[in-house]
C-alpha cells in the first residue's frame, strides 16, 4: 500500500515536470515502513536521560569539533557547529506543553544533523553538492558547494552552518588528517563517515563512552540484530519534527 502510494507520487512528480523522485518521495507519508530498503543505514539513538545525568558535559562536541577542524568562532552570528546542546523545548518544539515535567523543560539535548531518510537539503541543492550516500549519510561535497545556502533555508533542524569567513584563524589545533573548510561553503555533521570507513565509531559516540556517559548509541538500522535496532524495538523513542516527513535517522529517548 505504502509502496503503491509512493509510486503514484513519483509518477505525479514526473508528470508535474519535477522529473525526479526526491520531491515525490518527500510527499509520501511518514508512517509505515522506512524508505531505505536495502544496505547499511547508519542511525543514532540519544538517551537524553543519561546525557542529563552528566550536566555540563561537552565531551561529544569537543571530540567532534576537534576531529573535524570545526572552528571556535566567538561571535554567535558566525558560529559553526556540528553537534551541540539545545534545551528540550527548542529541540522538540511540537512535543512540548506548559505542564511537562521539570526535568524535561530544562534538559539539554544534543542536536546534530538528522541524516534524514528524505532530506530536504538534498532535494533543494542546485548542484548535488549535498547528497545522501548509500549508507544513509547526508553528506556535502565541499568541492562542489557554491554557497547559495538554499540547504540552510530547507533544513527544519538548523543543523547546517555556513562559513561566513575563513575558519582557519579560529582553529588552534588543526588536525592534519582532516581538511578544514574555506569561506563560503556550508558544513555540518557527516556521521564521521571518514571514521566509519576505517571501522571506527563516530568521534562523539566514542567520547561519550570515554566520558562514562554512554548516552549516544550508534549502529546499523538495516541489521535487525544491531544494538540500535534492538533498542528501538524495545524502548519508546521520538524523532525531531516527525510531522514534516523528513524521517530522521537520529532517535531520542526522553
Amino acid at each position: 500500500m505504502e509502496k503503491d502510494r509512493r509510486d503514484f507520487l513519483k509518477l505525479a512528480g514526473s508528470v508535474l515536470g519535477l522529473g525526479a523522485t526526491a520531491p515525490a518521495a518527500a510527499l509520501a507519508s511518514t508512517g509505515g515502513r522506512p524508505v531505505q530498503e536495502e544496505g547499511t543505514h547508519w542511525a543514532m539513538v540519544v538517551d537524553t536521560r543519561k546525557c542529563q545525568a552528566k550536566e555540563g558535559c561537552t565531551a561529544c562536541t569537543d571530540a567532534c569539533h576537534l576531529a573535524h577542524n570545526v572552528p571556535k568562532i566567538p561571535e554567535e552570528a558566525h558560529e559553526v557547529k556540528w553537534i551541540w546542546k539545545e534545551k528540550y523545548p527548542q529541540a522538540f518544539p511540537n512535543q512540548v506543553h506548559p505542564y511537562i515535567e521539570d526535568s524535561l523543560r530544562d534538559r539539554n539535548v544534543p542536536v546534530l544533523c538528522n541524516h534524514c531518510e528524505r532530506p530536504p537539503c538534498v532535494r533543494v541543492c542546485p548542484t548535488q553538492a549535498t547528497f545522501k550516500d548509500e549508507q544513509g549519510i547526508v553528506t556535502i561535497d565541499m568541492h562542489r558547494c557554491i554557497g547559495c545556502r538554499y540547504c540552510i533555508a530547507a533544513c527544519p533542524y538548523g543543523s547546517r552552518s555556513f562559513n561566513w569567513k575563513d575558519p582557519r584563524p579560529y582553529l588552534q589545533d588543526i588536525q592534519s588528517d582532516y581538511p578544514t573548510r574555506t569561506k563560503g561553503v556550508v558544513e555540518k555533521c557527516n556521521f564521521c563517515e571518514e571514521r566509519l570507513a576505517k571501522g571506527q565509531i563516530p568521534a562523539c559516540v566514542e567520547a561519550c563512552v570515554t566520558a562514562e556517559c554512554g548516552a549516544l548509541l550508534f549502529g546499523d538500522l538495516s541489521d535487525p540484530e544491531s544494538e540500535v535496532s534492538r533498542l528501538l524495538r524495545t524502548t519508546n523513542t521520538i524523532r525531531r519534527k516527525p510531522n514534516l516527513g523528513t524521517a530522521p535517522s537520529v532517535f531520542y529517548i526522553v
Binding site: N69, M142, I174, Q175, S176, Y178, P179, T180, R181, T182
Partner: peptide, 11 residues
C-alpha cells in the same frame, strides 16, 4: 591550485 584553502599542508 585551491586545494590548500581547505586541505591541511603537512607540518
Amino acid at each position: 591550485p585551491k586545494c590548500w584553502e581547505c586541505h591541511v599542508e603537512p607540518r
